[in-house]
Structures are given as C-alpha cells and as structure tokens.
Simulated scan of single mutants.
Amino acid sequence: MRKYLFAAAVVGSVAGTTATAASLNGEFWDVPANTIASIDQAIAQVNGGTDTPTATFTSTAVNYGESPWTIGSLSDFLNADAGSIVGTDPANIQESVFRLTGDVALTTGDTITVTSDDGFRLLVGGSTFSEFNGLRGPGGTTSAVWGGATGVYSATLWYFEGNFTQAQLISNLGDFVAPVPIPAGGLLLLSGIGAVAAMRRRKG
C-alpha cells in the first residue's frame, strides 16, 4: 500500500510541474549608444533578432521597472525574473532591445495592454497587433482589443530602451500565455507509473 501511495505522489508531482509551465522566452541585446530612437531602429539594430543576444531570461510576468523607473542593471530591471538570466548582466541597460516570445491563448474581445518607456511592438500570429514606435516616458499605455478568432497564436513583444534615464515595461500579455502541453514522453511515463501503481494495489 505504501508503494502505491508513493507512485501516486510521483504522478501528481510530474503532472503538476509540467502543466503549470507558462512563461515567455526573453532575449536582451545591449546596443551601441545613440543608435535607437524608434522600434524600427531597435529591431534593425539586432538584425531582426538574428544577432546573438547579450543575455536570455525567462519571463514569468511582464512587470519590469519600478518607480522611479531609474535605469540600472538588467537584473534590477527584471525584478523577480532576474534569477533566470543566462549571459551578461550589464550594469546599465540604457539603449537596449528586448524580445519576448511564446504562445498565447486569446478569446475574441480580449484586451492586451502595454505600458512602456520607451517604444514597443506586439505581433500576434506574425502580424503587428499594437505598437508605440518612438520615445515616451513611464506610464504611457497602449491598449488593443483582439478581434480575431478564439485560439492559440504565436506572440512576439519587442521593446526598446532609448538614451534617456528611465525604463519600464508592463503588460498583461503574460496572463494569456498558453499552458505548455505534457510532452508525449511525459504521457508515456505517467501511463507506466500508473500501471505500476495499479499492479502494486492488486498485490496489496
């Protein structure tokens, strides 16, 4: 009976860990001074994202930059996600480019907001959904309502910090991140553990 309970606990642990994995992939580029003043220039500066990023990270919530939004290091900016940084953590992110990517589950009529200092571009399904192209101060918010069909779409959020001394990126995009399905291998593992548990129970 004890072995059966252990197997059941393992099943619950594996399923819980996999099913709740919902995050965006983050990339960061530290770019030369005085090279970006618009989102178009920012994306061009990193060659559409083909250049090797300065660092990568996992975005669990798009809530970056705290009042008074003073520019500091990348880890300062990312707050709770700082522990996921892989690569260089520059002491100052002034003049930099970010890209967040992942899949989102949208329902017709959903509203996505982006508050940023400076500009951003949000693509859904490969097409621009909303953007602010130039420079603006903290608190500037852009909202857009999803008018497409309900479903799961690829999403890319570009953001740049220009040559001023404040930085902010807040969005509810993370609320729509689609749960990651359990891989086929994971399902086979769960099936196998379940079968073992059933056999143990019959023997008990």
Rank of each mutant, 00 (worst) to 15 (best):
L189M: 13
E131D: 09
A8M: 15
F164W: 13
N63H: 03
G186S: 06
D117F: 11
G162D: 15
R2Y: 02
S75H: 05
I170Q: 04
G26C: 06
D40K: 08
G126S: 04
L5R: 13
R2A: 12
E131C: 00
K3N: 11
L122F: 03
S67N: 13
N133S: 10
N34T: 08
F129T: 01
A167T: 12
L187W: 15
A149N: 14
T113Y: 09
A61R: 12
S23V: 00
G134Q: 11
E161R: 13
M1I: 12
E95K: 09
F77N: 06
D51I: 01
Y64K: 04
V177K: 05
W158P: 02
L78Y: 07
T107A: 15
S59E: 02
T35E: 14
S13P: 00
T60Y: 04
G26W: 04
A149P: 01
F6M: 09
V11M: 15
Q45Y: 02
A55N: 06
G194T: 11
V86Q: 07
A55R: 06
S116T: 11
V180W: 04
A9K: 07
G185Y: 10
G87S: 07
I36D: 10
V46G: 06
A198Q: 07
T142R: 05
A33E: 09
T88Y: 01
D51S: 13
T107S: 15
F57A: 03
F98T: 03
A167W: 03
W146Q: 07
G49P: 02
A80Q: 13
V62E: 02
L173Y: 08
A44T: 14
V114R: 01
L188E: 10
V11E: 12
A61F: 02
G125I: 08
G119L: 09
A55D: 07
G109C: 13
I193T: 10
S143T: 11
N163R: 10
V145T: 15
A37W: 03
P183C: 08
